[in-house]
């Protein structure tokens, strides 16, 4: 285990060194990401300018949901780039080489690329999260700090798991992976707003099928100290992020089934 972590960091170092070769472009891309996502937030802000509040939620409260999910989602993108581009590896047959090495495929793919550019979005999410928590005047007790970190980690797990699922699909088909983007990006966008503003079937989907509600909606309610308009008990928010870790474990299981279906290429 320790040895695997060491190897993972060696991989990251190599990936970073590669990206640093084009330093100027690299920095520009981080800044670009930062502003691009900022414009996204401006859209939300202007929405509230027009309507004041949405189903009883203020802009700052929504900003907390938004910031938290963006930090998780962007960090998951930083870490999961290898899986995101995995279809190409299947197509080229490069996956063969990974199977020839006495290491887990997950470790080798995750270590393939560290997507530093996405840090622009992480930064933007973090700034909005901090701003929202200041304006909301959140009383940061130790348990709440632990809960927020726990939720971010669990959120990374869910988005990472979704990208692993997308990669797993490429063992069966190289085409039509776009549908998975509706789950990853769609899931992240959905969680920019509190869950209760959506219709029932939609809420159910993001609670029971893709359990993003457990790492965003429920814990955020606890942190900002608001009772759930949907009536769930508040203790749920304290333990719900654990679902994120379970989700990731399940996706790795599915991944292993996919590996057994790998067909390799011709030569």
């Amino acid at each position: 285990m320790l040895n695997s972590i060491k190897l993972y960091f060696r991989f990251l170092e190599i990936s970073l060194r590669g990206q640093m070769q084009y330093r100027a472009s690299f920095i520009m891309q981080i800044i670009g990401q930062f502003f691009m996502t900022f414009i996204e937030f401006v859209a939300i802000w202007s929405l509230f300018q027009r309507f004041g509040s949405i189903k009883g939620w203020t802009l700052v409260e929504v900003a907390f949901f938004y910031g938290l999910v963006n930090v998780s989602f962007a960090l998951s993108e930083v870490l999961s780039r290898g899986f995101d581009t995995f279809a190409g590896m299947v197509k080229s047959g490069d996956f063969d080489r990974l199977l020839l090495r006495p290491r887990s495929t997950v470790l080798q793919i995750a270590g393939k690329e560290f997507h530093m550019r996405r840090f622009g979005r992480v930064l933007q999410g973090a700034i909005i999260l901090v701003w929202a928590s200041i304006v909301l005047n959140i009383n940061w007790t130790v348990d709440k700090i632990i809960l927020v970190l726990f939720s971010i980690l669990a959120g990374i797990c869910i988005f990472f798991g979704l990208i692993v699922l997308q990669a797993t699909l490429s063992f069966w088909t190289i085409e039509s992976l776009e549908i998975m983007n509706t789950l990853t990006y769609g899931g992240a966008e959905t969680s920019h707003y509190p869950l209760n503003i959506y219709r029932k079937w939609f809420r159910r989907f993001f609670t029971y099928i893709i359990p993003i509600a457990f790492v965003n909606y429920f814990p955020v309610l606890v942190i900002i100290g608001k009772p759930d308009p949907l009536g769930t008990p508040s203790w749920l928010g304290w333990i719900s992020p654990i679902v994120g870790f379970v989700f990731l474990v399940v996706t790795f299981r599915i991944w292993n089934i996919g590996v057994r279906h790998y067909k390799s290429t011709g030569s």
Binding site: D96, Y262, S264, G266
Partner: peptide, 13 residues
């Protein structure tokens, strides 16, 4: 040939 080698190497089942 390659299929045989890949099975021996554990890449294919």
């Amino acid at each position: 040939k390659s299929t045989t080698v890949k099975i021996l190497a554990g890449i294919l089942i």
